[in-house]
């Protein structure tokens, strides 16, 4: 929406006022006097609040009603119990992680053992084949003298 002169003037007046107020506030809010009075003002305020809370608690106690301090104590105990439960949960999760890792390691070891067994079986089979081959060779070598004509002897 295009601004009319009135609205423009209002904005400009506000901005001029804001600028002067900001400068003034900057001086006030960072002055040592303000800091001192803020410190003492806040101290008095918190002491007043504490006195009020204590008074309310005293009144409730007189009526045998649970005070805010009682409720806070109970809530704190619950909170501490929850902390302990969460610490237990942390330990359980860590144990679970170790169990999973150990299961993985066991599984891997079984796979490795299986593979090693297969490899050993292959090697055994190869050795067996070689032994058979040697035995066959040996057998044929032993049979040879009877089957083959003797050297150096001429048949008459």
């Amino acid at each position: 929406m295009a601004r009319s002169d009135g609205s423009q003037m209002a904005t400009e007046m506000y901005e001029a006022w804001e600028k002067s107020m900001t400068t003034w506030w900057d001086q006030v809010l960072e002055s040592p006097a303000f800091l001192k009075s803020m410190g003492s003002g806040v101290t008095q305020q918190v002491q007043g609040r504490r006195a009020y809370e204590d008074a309310v608690d005293t009144t409730l106690e007189k009526f045998h009603l649970p005070t805010r301090a009682d409720l806070t104590r109970v809530a704190r105990i619950t909170s501490l119990l929850e902390d302990r439960l969460l610490s237990l949960e942390d330990r359980l999760l860590a144990l679970e992680d170790r169990l999973v890792a150990s299961e993985k390691a066991t599984l891997q070891a079984r796979i490795d053992a299986g593979e090693a067994r297969l490899a050993a079986e292959d090697r055994l089979a190869a050795i067996e084949d070689r032994l058979i081959a040697i035995a066959e060779k040996l057998g044929s070598t032993l049979e040879e003298p009877t089957a083959r004509p003797r050297r150096g002897r001429k048949e008459g």
């Binding site: 800091l35 001192k36 803020m38 410190g39 003492s40 806040v42 101290t43 918190v46 002491q47 609040r49 504490r50 806070t72």
Partner: peptide, 15 residues
């Protein structure tokens, strides 16, 4: 600032 801000008064009184 440590000299002006009533940190301990706030926490000690109000929790």
């Amino acid at each position: 600032s440590p000299s002006d801000f009533p940190l301990d008064a706030i926490v000690d009184n109000l929790g």
